[in-house]
Amino acid sequence: TRVETATETAWISLVTALHLVLGLSAVLGLLLLRWQFPAHYRRLRHALW
């Protein structure tokens, strides 16, 4: 049971790290898009909202 718990903890930390990385890359990508294509971003936002 001790090994299982350790594996579970490792998986949880791995998944958390993955989610953090994905979230950060998504935010960075959005910022980059907004910085590179302001007109396109505004049009996209206008279409979405």
Rank of each mutant, 00 (worst) to 15 (best):
36 Q>M: 15
6 A>Q: 09
16 T>Q: 01
5 T>Y: 04
1 T>V: 10
31 L>N: 02
6 A>L: 09
38 P>A: 15
32 L>M: 15
1 T>W: 12
45 R>Y: 05
47 A>E: 05
33 L>D: 01
44 L>N: 00
42 R>P: 03
22 L>C: 11
41 Y>Q: 02
29 G>T: 15
43 R>H: 07
11 W>F: 12
31 L>T: 13
17 A>W: 08
12 I>K: 13
33 L>A: 12
18 L>P: 04
23 G>W: 10
27 V>D: 03
12 I>L: 13
40 H>R: 10
13 S>C: 13
13 S>G: 10
17 A>K: 00
11 W>C: 05
33 L>K: 03
34 R>N: 05
22 L>E: 03
42 R>Q: 14
28 L>V: 02
40 H>G: 14
7 T>Q: 11
13 S>P: 06
9 T>Y: 13
36 Q>R: 15
44 L>P: 03
40 H>N: 09
18 L>Y: 03
42 R>V: 08
30 L>G: 10
49 W>K: 03
35 W>N: 15
17 A>N: 01
1 T>Y: 10
44 L>E: 01
38 P>V: 08
42 R>T: 11
35 W>D: 05
12 I>H: 09
25 S>H: 02
25 S>E: 01
2 R>K: 12
26 A>K: 04
36 Q>G: 15
36 Q>T: 15
47 A>H: 10
1 T>F: 11
41 Y>T: 09
35 W>E: 09
27 V>C: 11
24 L>P: 05
13 S>M: 13
21 V>R: 01
47 A>P: 03
33 L>T: 04
5 T>W: 00
22 L>M: 14
17 A>F: 09
35 W>I: 15
13 S>Y: 12
8 E>W: 00
7 T>D: 06
39 A>T: 15
26 A>M: 15
25 S>F: 06
2 R>P: 13
39 A>C: 05
27 V>W: 08
38 P>S: 12
31 L>F: 11
34 R>M: 07
5 T>M: 09
28 L>C: 06
8 E>Q: 06
45 R>F: 05
9 T>G: 12
44 L>S: 03
5 T>C: 03
43 R>C: 08
43 R>G: 07
21 V>S: 11
42 R>W: 09
39 A>F: 10
8 E>T: 08
48 L>A: 07
25 S>K: 04
19 H>F: 04
3 V>L: 11
10 A>E: 10
18 L>W: 07
43 R>Y: 07
23 G>V: 11
30 L>R: 02
39 A>G: 15
18 L>H: 04
38 P>M: 10
28 L>E: 02
